[in-house]
Nucleic acid binder design. Structure first.
Lengths: 346, 346
DNA sequence: CTATTTTTTATAATAGTTTTCATAAGAATT
DNA sequence: AATTCTTATGAAAACTATTATAAAAAATAG
């Protein structure tokens, strides 16, 4: 039975009667080492079961080849796809990915940012929590030239890379689509708007579209949920459908909320989309599965993860303190499915 | 502008005219350090913006406080919940979580296992890929006493911790439930069964339940998909419903597959559950949202993650080479919803 | 066969923390 | 007053890989 104690380059050096420096260089094909030596060293490494200690290398070189990902949760489809995109991209370049979930708690987020810094991650990708207003806990990364990318949920004023979609435009597009289908009274369900986040942008787009097309902008048509759960959304949408002056369309800021609205409409015997057209947001897996299929706004999660990781990697490769921290806008599209298609375009 | 170069315990030691050892101890409330000194050190650390370098600590102590998680993908609801459970539990004990996705590729899995080992993770939690038969790439962890837990998809014969559900029993329960609802001809949809995985166990349970209750076990009622996608499952279930001798019940080995079956039944104008009762597996989010609600088998993902992490943590704390590597069975339940409830129990 | 250049290897410093062992100062015991 | 026991702190080694610099060996030129 193999016993503890890792094989180190010292062991290799001993065995081969070479210096550790030679071993180290040989293992990474350094040009000043003869091919013969390289071959010899590698063979012995294999034989003795040498495994590089990335900790030691990281300590010495002050780099860990690790990207930290700090997000509210991993269980939302959008976020798990985001992670997937990050992981695939990072992995291709030999980087590891550390995940932390803030669960939208400000305190957790602060503590995790500290923890990631302390782990000396090579870069950090973050989607901030609902309640995060103060972002000074990210300053340490900037001060120490550790690449930082905010993705999707980004702080208002923090000069660093951002990978986002245009939520205002998306909200506008979604609403406009409903209008084009002939909706005259369009409701909106959103969540946590008191925290001034991206949902508010979508709502702005919604309102502006209504104004543009001379449709009523009414308080009673706008619902603001405390949390995005199916049941809460179900109650809210049921209430909307019981208004004296019932809406004939709905733009929901998320697919879960849209799905619940479809459910309550069906229970009330309304036809979708004829009596009540619905469009959601995110293109979550459920949107394809519910009946009728849910129209939605695409939200390129994996792509956003990929882009974020690429920015980190590029930024590590070409460090440049004074570089302009560009904002990357990714495209969203109106994905028309059954739940909103009143008009069959020829 | 703050400039590079981290504050180290040397800097603190210098400033306070103390030894680095004292600093190190003070920072972790070592009992031999006076309260006065501890206070002084902590205050200065705060003041100078000291952040511990976990790399260095890890190198010294030969531990990284990191748990590696190697799974096929993060985007399946079951697996993202699993990760969530792991992350929360690990985090509570100050452990980081590194995620890697094998995408069911054997080569990737091998390479990632190597990479995790090289990162000196303190423990590893793994759900093996579909095609993984040879598991020798995990031997290195065992040989070096690095705690290893297999979860959900586990290898047949590898003596280490396992956190699983009883897939056979679950398959049996699901089928029995349909039988109790009066189904006489029960179909089954599964996937990738040629790889001898947990799906086969469920199928065994299905078959044994049929036999037990003297119902027909027929080839034409069992479908084996290549991949678990909604569309492929839709085609397969449609075909099932077009059989001369149509089934009146279905046990699908996953909720996506069950959802597609519901969809095709609805398209054919069948009543669910009266004409066609359906039960899925996993209790994915969609199961609550589709209409009718999907009966399913609960699969305690977050709990399994938590248990796995706890085993790792315990195993780190009390290392014991010769310990019995127990198998933890978690409970599954038949969650009866609309899609299968033919009989309203009094 | 020197002198010079090129190739290869060795030495030692470095990264930042933890920990073992040692020591000094003061308190308690005889 | 001498000894032992506590308590608090310090010095130095260890963890492993990298790298700058020095040195040695080999190859080439004159």
């Amino acid at each position: 039975m193999e016993e503890n104690k890792d094989v180190t380059i010292y062991d290799l050096a001993n065995k081969l009667k070479l210096a550790t420096s030679t071993i180290s260089r040989a293992l990474k094909d350094h040009p000043t080492i003869s091919t013969k030596t390289i071959k010899k060293v590698k063979k012995m490494a294999e034989e003795m079961g040498y495994v590089p200690n990335t900790l030691a290398a990281g300590l010495r070189g002050n780099k860990t080849n690790t990207i930290g990902v700090l997000i509210p949760t991993v269980t939302q489809p959008f976020l798990s796809s985001l992670i997937s995109g990050i992981e695939i991209t990072a992995r291709k370049s030999g980087y590891n990915v550390i995940i932390m979930q803030s669960h939208d708690s400000y305190e957790e987020e602060v503590s995790m940012a500290k923890s990631l810094y302390s782990s000396r991650v090579s870069g950090i990708i973050c989607s901030i929590g609902m309640k995060t207003v103060d972002t000074s806990h990210f300053q340490q990364f900037v001060n120490n030239n550790i690449p930082l990318v905010f993705v999707d949920r980004v702080p208002k004023d923090f000069n660093t890379f951002r990978v986002i979609i245009d939520n205002y435009a998306a909200g506008y597009k979604a609403t406009k689509h409903l209008i084009e289908q002939g909706c005259k009274r369009i409701a909106h369900i959103t969540a946590g708007s008191e925290f001034g986040n991206l949902y508010n942008e979508r709502k702005r787009g919604y309102i502006d579209a209504l104004i543009k097309y001379n449709l009523p902008v009414e308080k009673e048509l706008m619902v603001d949920l405390k949390t995005v759960t199916y049941n809460e959304a179900l109650k809210a949408s049921t209430k909307l459908l019981e208004l004296k002056n019932r809406p004939d369309g709905l733009f929901a800021s998320g697919d879960i909320m849209a799905a619940s609205a479809i459910q309550s409409a069906k229970r009330k015997g309304l036809r979708i989309p004829e009596d009540f057209a619905v469009i959601g947001f995110n293109n979550d897996p459920i949107s394809e599965i519910i009946d009728p299929n849910l129209s939605t706004i695409t939200h390129p999660a994996a792509k956003m993860g990929q882009m974020s990781a690429e920015i980190i990697l590029k930024s590590i490769k070409f460090p440049n303190k004074d570089e302009v921290k560009e904002i990357t806008f990714l495209n969203t599209e109106v994905l028309v499915r059954e739940s909103s298609k009143k008009i069959t375009s020829s």
